[in-house]
Design a protein around this nucleic acid. Structure first.
Lengths: 202, 202
DNA sequence: CTTTAAATATGACTAGGGTCATGTATGACT
DNA sequence: AGTCATACATGACCCTAGTCATATTTAAAG
C-alpha cells in the first residue's frame, strides 16, 4: 500500500473518530465542520474531499453500523428453524440493536431518509436500508414457500415489502414516541398479525 | 376583523402564492427566501414572522393539500360498502391524489419526515400524517369487526398501524422509483395480502 | 387629537455549509 | 537525483437560512 493510500485511510478514520466523539458530546446539528476539521488537524476543504456533505458523514456511520449488524444476523438466520421464527428473530434482533442507542438511530434514520429521498432523483443503485432488508426477507420467505410454511400463492416480493414496511413503520413510530415502549415487542406482535391476516377466517 | 388581522392574512397568502409559483418553476432548494420576499414585496425578516423556517412553509403546503384530500375522502367512506372495499377505496384514492404531482409529493414527504423527526423530540401533539391515517383506518376497521368482516381477535390499533405502514412504504418506494409503476395498483395488491395473511392456511 | 404600549416590519448582520483557485506532497519515469 | 504529472490539501471566499436591535404601524385610552 502506497504512502498516499495510507494517509487517505488515516485521514478518513481520523474524521470518523473525531466526529463520532463530537456528535455524541454535542449532537449532530451542534457540531460544525470547522470543529471537526480543527480537532482532526486538517483544513476545512479537506473534509469535503472525503465526504461530499456533512450529512454524508452521518450516512457513513449508518453504513458502518449496518455492516456489523447484518453480518451478525445473516449468520444467525442460517440456523434451522420455522420460517416465521427465523423472520421474527431476524427483525427482532435488528430492532434490539437499534434500541441500544435511540438518539443515534434517530439521526441516522431521519437524515438517511432525507438524503436517499433526494439522491433518489439521480440515477444509480438503491443502496437504501429498506431495499437490503427486503432482499433478505424475500430469501427467507422463499424457503418458507418451499417448505409449505408460507402460502404459495402470495407474491414473494410483495410479502417481503409488506414485512419491510411494517418493520420501518414500527421503528419510526418508536423513534417518535416519547414514552418508553418496546420496539421489538411491538414488532413481534405485528409480524404475527401479518402471518395470520386481518380478515376473518369465518 | 381589524386592519392588522387583514394584513396578516394578506401577507401570509402572498407568501404562499409566490412561493408556490417559484417552487414549481425552480424547485424548493433553488428558491431562496430572499427571492420569495422580494417577489412578495416584504422584507426578509418578515418571512420568519410567518414561518419559523423555510421548511415550515413546505409543511404548510402539505397541510393545505391534506386538508382538501382528507375531507373529500372522509365523506366518500361514509357510503355503505364492505369494510375491505372502503379501506381500499380510501387508500387508493389517497394514492391517486399523490400520483398527480410526484415531484411535489416527493418534497412534501421527505421534508415533512425530516421535520417531524426532529420536532418529534420536543413534546407536543403528533400532527404527523401517519397518525391521522391510522386513526381513520382504526375507525373503519372497528366497523368491520362489528359486522364480522374483520377478525375480532386482532388488535385494532395494531392492524391500523400495519395498514398505515404499508401505505407509506409503498408511497416511498414509488417516490424513489424511476420507472413508472402505479402506486395505487401496487397498494391495492398489498391490501389484499394483508387481509389474507402471509401464512399458509393449510 | 395625543399619548402610549404592543404588535409587526425591517434589513444589516452572523453562522455555518460548501466551493474553488492555488499550493504542496507523492510517486513514476529517466 | 532530477523532472514532471497527478492527486491531494489548503483556506479565503461565497451563499443563504436565520437572528435581532431598531423603526414603523396599529389601536386603545385619555
Amino acid at each position: 500500500m502506497s504512502l498516499r493510500e495510507k494517509k487517505k485511510i488515516e485521514t478518513k478514520s481520523r474524521i470518523f473518530e473525531v466526529s463520532g466523539r463530537l456528535f455524541k458530546e454535542k449532537g449532530f446539528e451542534n457540531t460544525t465542520v470547522d470543529e471537526i476539521t480543527k480537532e482532526a488537524g486538517i483544513a476545512k476543504g479537506t473534509f469535503f474531499n472525503y465526504f461530499p456533505t456533512k450529512e454524508a458523514l452521518l450516512m457513513y456511520f449508518g453504513e458502518q453500523k449496518d455492516e456489523l449488524i447484518y453480518n451478525l444476523i445473516e449468520n444467525e438466520t442460517k440456523r434451522d428453524a420455522p420460517t416465521k421464527e427465523k423472520i421474527k428473530n431476524f427483525l427482532v434482533h435488528l430492532a434490539e440493536s437499534y434500541e441500544k442507542d435511540k438518539e443515534l438511530t434517530k439521526l441516522l434514520i431521519f437524515e438517511y431518509r432525507r438524503y436517499i429521498g433526494y439522491s433518489g432523483l439521480r440515477p444509480g443503485e438503491d443502496k437504501s436500508r429498506s431495499h437490503r432488508l427486503s432482499t433478505i426477507l424475500h430469501d427467507l420467505l422463499k424457503v418458507g414457500v418451499e417448505n409449505g410454511e408460507v402460502s404459495n400463492d402470495i407474491k414473494l416480493t410483495k410479502a417481503a415489502e409488506v414485512l419491510t414496511a411494517v418493520y420501518f413503520h414500527s421503528l419510526i413510530t418508536w423513534l417518535k414516541s416519547e414514552t418508553a415502549f418496546s420496539f421489538s415487542k411491538d414488532l413481534s406482535g405485528k409480524i404475527d398479525m401479518l402471518f395470520e391476516g386481518i380478515g376473518d377466517r369465518m
